[in-house]
Design a protein around this nucleic acid. Structure first.
Lengths: 258, 258
DNA sequence: ACCGAATTTCTAGCAGTGCTAGGATCGCGG
DNA sequence: CCGCGATCCTAGCACTGCTAGAAATTCGGT
């Protein structure tokens, strides 16, 4: 029985190393350099073993993307520290070397099936709660949430915005897997994986206090769209980098209604 | 001399047909279906002739993208139509079957310069063909209001926003070529092609009146980012379609400082 | 400890991709 | 009409994602 267990453990480990290799290779040489042959070489197996873990290359990309969503959600929901130095530490955590992530299996996991099955994560139709009550309805994300956010909701929005863009900038290939490469991860539906919901919930939570009379879901979608637009457009040099902070400030001003 | 001239004319025609074939194929079957062999078959030549016109496949995509920027710029800068019939005709040009485009060179053409200066190649103002429901829900967006967009800066912003998203929705593959596929078109630099500037200028122009004390360039970048984010995220179903109009309204509200 | 069975892994190959060298073919000037 | 230069196509390269069937490995039962 121990042998059997070891087998499944080894298999899981190998699967993780595939995802890690894909991510690492993509981050260093771009996604066009991520081929099945190179991946096989990295994990020191032949190509066909990849297909015993994933349905195809797209599935591998999707696994990387899911990992990215989990990390993004965690980065956004991270409690805000009072002093800026700790905040800098947070941003460093975002940029964490993929190797480190892989080395710690207890961290965010890659298996999609394991993630989906939690019914409490059904933040899907949180549209019903368009007011600050959504924080109470979702204590998990707001419990450890930004302490200063209660005092200063605007600063909380600014922090989330900065973290989002920092994440996209620090992990361009990962961000590509999440958004640009089409991985057909279900998004607005019932079977939407938890990390995706968590990422959106983190944005929505921080926006609810400043929503006023507006629908916080729409406001969150809009903010997310703006952040995504800024991230992608500035990534390939279509937005001048010198006005980056001005853009963020302007966005926060708009959203918070200043 | 006539023979020589005919040669260069034929070459130009063939180059246009290559771009048109690429666009048509991409729009119908997606960019992954656009291969050099298929393109060669469409234009009824062998593959190597493609490389006598373009440096590679990326250059063909870039040509399509440039065409897209020209059309987008014109669509955004289009004066608000007072006559619904004209607007309807325009919208036909937008969603026009690519086949028609190919068959009729006098229609929306491949040559960017020609497009910019040809008013007949107008792109849609969707307002005229908007469904009654949205008109009823949002009376501000009536055709009558478009006429007063010069007088009403807010309506002008709303019109541009709607046109932008309509364009992205009506030409998904074209929009992909412009943004998602990396064509390394120079953007914020000195050698930025005119169509790209025109597109951004159209956004900035309409935002300047509502900028107030804010930097209109930053505001335009921000608005553009939001529009781009909405366009891309809703394209692969990551934003629920049912709140599309609410999102646009919310964006316009934010930007115009309502 | 052995040996057949079952699982796992690899070798070899398919169809398709972007792209290119070199030979065939065409049209033009003389 | 011919020769020559421009034009075009055939054939092929190195690569891609993916898979069938052979080889190797591990397992369970005696």
């Amino acid at each position: 029985m121990s042998a059997q267990e070891r087998k499944v453990r080894d298999r899981a480990q190998r699967e993780r190393s595939i995802v890690a290799a894909a991510r690492q290779l993509a981050e260093s040489d771009g996604w066009e350099a991520v081929t099945t042959r190179r991946l096989a070489e990295r994990i020191e197996y032949s190509q066909p073993v990849l297909y015993s873990h994933f349905a195809g290359k797209d599935a591998i990309v999707a696994a990387v993307a899911l990992e990215g969503f989990a990390e993004l959600a965690q980065a956004l929901a991270q409690p805000a520290a009072a002093d800026p130095r700790a905040a800098a530490a947070d941003s460093r955590a975002v940029v964490a070397n993929p190797k480190t992530v892989v080395a710690d299996p207890s961290a965010v996991v890659a298996d999609p099936k394991a993630v989906v099955t939690d019914p409490r994560a059904a933040v899907a139709d949180s549209r019903a709660v368009a007011d600050p009550k959504s924080s109470a309805a979702n204590p998990k994300s707001s419990a450890a949430n930004l302490r200063s956010s209660v005092a200063d909701p605007r600063a909380a929005v600014a922090t989330v915005a900065r973290r989002y863009l920092k994440f996209a900038e620090a992990n361009p290939a990962l961000y590509d897997a999440m958004f640009n490469l089409h991985t057909d991860l279900p998004f607005g539906r019932a079977d939407t994986p938890a990390p995706l919901r968590a990422a959106f919930a983190a944005i929505q939570d921080v926006l609810a206090p400043v929503a006023g009379g507006r629908d916080s879901a729409v406001l969150a979608e809009l903010t997310w769209s703006a952040l995504h637009g800024i991230a992608t457009l500035s990534r390939d040099g279509r937005l001048p980098p010198e006005y980056a902070t001005e853009r963020i400030d302007a966005l926060v001003d708009l959203v918070t209604g200043q």
